[in-house]
């Protein structure tokens, strides 16, 4: 029995879509997620991965099929059919990608919004910062604290050739590694001394350039205790590859202990420096 081509095509398409969805959901190529926005990011990643797989496998399949099915037999000098166009088909393959990218665009906008990327920065000046200085947009804390009602912990980050320096203004701690408590929003106020650097924690799915002359705000909430690399991602000179540090995500109590141990004021009078 010959099965009509239309049905075969339909079945192939459905298998392809299912396979793509399966790949997107089950093939994990990302590092562990350790911040509140990492799972949000991973959602987007899965969608993109599925769409990408479907498109890629579909097109490669078509090519392979054509190359085998329509290959020229030895001695064949004939031509194929003189088909120069097909309006419905052309409309179809203009419309499908258009719909797909429109969907992807809107969806990633939504994801970005959920990560706090769309929040306006300049009308919310930094907590406790007296002077009105222009701040540039990283991922902003505004949406985070409005929802949770928790005040973020501020840390000043200075990037220079070739190190990051972290300063906790309220506890007066200066450190080469970033210690943060899990579950509390962190607001990094970043500044570069010499050239452009970038602050990247792969497990947080977050990156922000640190550009001299442009104090930039980046905020996140770490969720999973552990040690994760901080990587400088912008070429900043010969030792760019060595410009790394570590972020240590602690349980809140452990973090508090670290603060108490290291802060000159915390040990003097028993304030809670976490409140900014």
């Amino acid at each position: 029995m010959r099965i009509p081509a239309a049905i075969l095509t339909l079945i192939t398409g459905m298998v392809l879509v299912l396979a793509g969805l399966w790949v997107g959901q089950n093939v994990n190529v990302l590092p562990v997620d350790a911040s509140a926005n990492a799972p949000v990011y991973d959602e987007l990643f899965k969608v993109l991965f599925s769409i990408g797989t479907i498109l890629f496998v579909g097109i490669v399949g078509l090519i392979a099929y054509s190359l085998v099915r329509f290959r020229r037999r030895p001695g064949d000098q004939s031509d194929g059919e003189a088909i120069e166009g097909n309006l419905p088909l052309e409309i179809l393959w203009t419309a499908i990608p258009a719909v797909v990218v429109l969907f992807v665009g809107i969806y990633s906008y939504d994801i970005y919004d959920r990560m706090g990327g769309m929040a306006p920065l300049n009308d919310h000046s930094m907590h406790g910062m007296a002077h009105e200085e222009r701040t540039w947009a990283g991922i902003s804390p505004v949406s985070l604290d409005e929802e949770s009602g928790i005040t973020p912990l501020s840390v000043d980050v200075t990037a220079m050739q070739f190190a990051f320096i972290f300063h906790y203004p309220n506890a007066e701690i200066t450190s080469g590694e970033l210690h943060v408590p899990a579950g509390q929003p962190i607001a990094l106020r970043m500044q570069a001394n010499d050239v452009i650097h970038a602050f990247w924690v792969p497990q947080f799915r977050l990156k922000q350039d640190v550009i001299p002359g442009q104090p930039t705000l980046l905020s996140f909430t770490a969720t999973r205790p552990g040690r994760y690399p901080i990587v400088c991602a912008e070429l900043c000179g010969p030792y760019h590859g060595g410009m790394r540090s570590t972020v240590i995500v602690d349980e809140p109590e452990t973090f508090q202990a670290w603060v108490n141990q290291n802060s000159p004021i915390a040990s003097a009078n028993n304030v809670t420096p976490v409140q900014s």
């Binding site: 949000v40 990633s108 970038a198």
Partner: peptide, 10 residues
């Protein structure tokens, strides 16, 4: 996609 790129840029 901005959110995707933020992770993998550079």
């Amino acid at each position: 996609q901005v959110p995707f790129d933020i992770h993998v840029h550079d």
